[in-house]
Nucleic acid binder design. Sequence first.
RNA 1: UGCCGGAUAGCUCAAUUGGCAGAGCGUCUGACUCUGGAUCAGAAGGUUUAAGGUUCGAGACCUUAUCCGGCAGCCA
Length: 566
Amino acid sequence: MSNTDEPKVDFSAIPSDFIRDAIKQDLAEGRFSRVHTRFPPEPNAYLHIGHAKAVWIDYGIAQDFGGLFNLRFDDTNPAKEEQEFVDGIIEDVKWLGADWGDRLFFGSDYFEQMYDWALVLIKKGSAYVCDLSPEEVSATRGTLTSPGTNSPFRDRSPEENLDLFTRMRAGEFPDGSRTLRAKIDMASPNMNLRDPVMYRILHTEHHRQGDKWCIYPMYDWAHGLEDSIEGVTHSLCSLEYVIHRPLYDWFLDELNIYHPRQIEFPRLNMTYTVMSKRRFIELVNGGYVNGYDDPRLPTLAGMRRRGYRPEAIKEFVTRVGLTKADSIIEEHVLEDCVREDLNKHAARVMGVVNPLKVVITNYPEGQTEELEAINNPEDPSAGSRRVPFSKVLYIEKDDFREIPPPKFYRLTVGKEVRLRYAYFIICTDIVKDANGEVVELHCTYDPATKGGDAPDGRKVKATLHWVSAEHAVKAEIRLYDNLFSKPDPDDVEEGQTWFDNLNPSSLVVTEGYVEPSVADTPVGTKYQFERMGYFCIDKDSTPSRLVFNRTATLRDTWAKIAKAQG
RNA sequence: UGCCGGAUAGCUCAAUUGGCAGAGCGUCUGACUCUGGAUCAGAAGGUUUAAGGUUCGAGACCUUAUCCGGCAGCCA
């Protein structure tokens, strides 16, 4: 039972970072009495993992403080935006797990209100119509170290400005001929304050507003108004907008309307990849990747297709943390999050990526038996399944060595290993092709070891995965690796470009075999191929042809040993 | 020669109002195992960018320097 009128949020339960701390202080000192955030993408591209960070900052903070969260499209530039991206972004944000309820908004829906507010500024002499060309505006802006010069149109009367601005809206003037500018200070050390453009003329159809408008608001003018209209308390954006904050504040103050607080955080960067729309386009158009949902791209669509679960992405974003410092996250951190997540949620199955035929010479011809296999040792409720075993099998090529290197525990002539859930086998003979390559193994099995345990208690060093040749399902398996071979794709020699750092082995396709239990599962189903990694069924699969994407390998101690041996 | 940020372990981040510099990942050891996975245990790893100042006491506050990033679209 509480004696206070309003329930107080327990701040101590809310994690600490510079943004949450600032919000706690705002609440404690009464600047705001509630928390309301928004995620404001421009619908001009698909979202990538950097956006996932922003989503989880915005949505996570709203959740932590028991506040509201809006999904708002910042669609103020019709030249760049498309409905396709609106739909894609909605799908991506939903997939991530951020819930905006019915709070889905479009900046363009506020154009009328923004126009009215522009009139207010014109009337009080804080904005003017400028006839300078884009080139002239640029030339009179000054430089980083020298002030700009005033526009000759700066001192037009409010009446003239009103007339001109009204006619701009009415469509009397061609693109680029005039702008509405805020009258601030052409000598400001902050370039953004040197009479920034508020409206430009654009006779372009808007994906949502059609041809209703031919003047469109600029970001700086629009964004704070959108936040204000929606009652956002904390407008969280990336660091590049720090320098825009004085302008954000200036417009709101000039209008004397509800004033949210902008706080900036750094963008996410990751090694071995690129994170910009422009580069995604170049990669796609150049045929280096197969579309925006290519599993090698850090787009949310790509990661979803690769088999990442949104839970892994959330964990990643959490691990990255939130500070004011720019940083580059190592790619393996994401991979580790993906493994940790899939380890708990992916059913285990046996799949052979690079098959090597094995004949069990002492196994009865034509016999098949079903052996019990555990679906997920991490999750007893996942139960078990039956896997068919017969005389001819496939094992992984890498699991056999004619001449084993030191510490190689797997199969070689004369050595006994276990076939998982099946039998102990010993390799007796090898069959080679004309090139001297091993193409088939002859082995014998010990019937007493059925299920995988020897009654006499003898041990084997290795357990191999396998499939029955007669029962296995053939599958295309796509093995993905980093898109770039250097941590920083821009780390290039003289005369080279970042394209030269593309990893030629970022996609390797093999023909493998998987156990029959996976045959009829839907696209997106995630498995762990025992000892090989995590795989999911790709959308390219057809009823007659399974296609798997490798989401991630398992941590491979042997690979490390092998590498150390050279 | 401008303005605004930032700098703590290899990486990402912690460190109550100034009070013994910690964690996760990575690395290395070891244990265990019907996945050489998972798991568990342990270890190494720091002149907190530098110099000065305030203070009984500074990663934190002040000054200066260095390095890194952002800013001169009618993009967002």
